[in-house]
């Protein structure tokens, strides 16, 4: 399978099944998807529809039962855990629904963690810069337990951008926040995404948030359909 230069993610006949006692559960069925560099993509769907599973496969956190995933020009479904981890270190950033900051580290240390682990030397300076960008320069030495939910998510966003990833995966980034705080976090996410030229793939069940992305996909019972622009109606991409 070859990928044209503008393509950043491509999947072909991607399936994920889980073996249960007595039967097999199809979580994802025949997902064919292409995402170009710089795109912002939303995957929407009800709880349990398979959105997060797809996100995990696209980001190389998990491997499919069948089918192919290409990330940054490299087929990742055939790579082992460590090779996928190295690829993630080079290209991928994450923002999670429940922030997932390490409680033992301060805000600044959480932000600089990926850069330090990747051996980057200017991690602290860049971390401070990013915390300033997300409006938390005053609280850089606070620990997660001392920060509000919104503040924690802003730290998580700063952490996601510190390695200057080519693609950012966000899993329900504002679901755990009140609407006003959620909106501020979303603004920040899109702003940074734009300024850094990052490809954004976000999973949400919030239509307003999805609408802010260039492309929206609907996940329903393991099948993915792309919502075409208003005039074109909805087309099945899976």
């Amino acid at each position: 399978m070859s990928v044209t230069p503008e393509l950043f993610i491509q999947t072909r006949q991607l399936c994920k099944q889980v073996a249960l006692p007595g039967n097999t559960l199809n979580i994802l069925t025949d997902i064919n998807l292409t995402i170009n560099r710089g795109d912002s993509v939303a995957i929407v769907g009800a709880s349990g529809s398979g959105k997060s599973t797809l996100l995990g496969l696209l980001a190389g956190l998990d491997v499919p039962s069948s089918g192919e995933v290409v990330l940054a020009g490299q087929r990742i479904d055939t790579l082992n855990d460590d090779a996928r981890a190295e690829l993630r270190a080079q290209h991928v950033g994450f923002v999670f629904q429940s922030f997932l900051l390490l409680p033992a580290l301060s805000a600044l240390e959480n932000v600089t963690l990926p850069a330090e682990l990747a051996g980057q030397r200017d991690a602290t300076a860049r971390g401070k810069q990013l915390l300033e960008l997300v409006g938390l320069s005053e609280r850089m030495h606070f620990f997660p337990a001392q920060l509000s939910g919104g503040e924690q998510q802003r730290v998580a966003i700063a952490r996601a951008f510190i390695t200057q990833p080519a693609i950012l995966f966000a899993d329900e980034p504002s679901a755990n926040l009140d609407s006003a705080t959620g909106r501020r976090v979303e603004d920040l996410l899109f702003e940074l995404n734009r300024s850094q030229g990052t490809t954004l793939v976000l999973v949400t069940h919030n239509p307003q948030l999805a609408a802010r992305c260039q492309r929206q996909f609907l996940m329903d019972a393991g099948r993915l359909t792309e919502a075409l622009p208003m005039a074109e109606g909805r087309s099945h991409v899976g």
Partner: peptide, 13 residues
Amino acid sequence: MAVAVIKALGVTA
């Protein structure tokens, strides 16, 4: 969870 997070951020086993 901390290990899962650092692994997601690119840390190998």
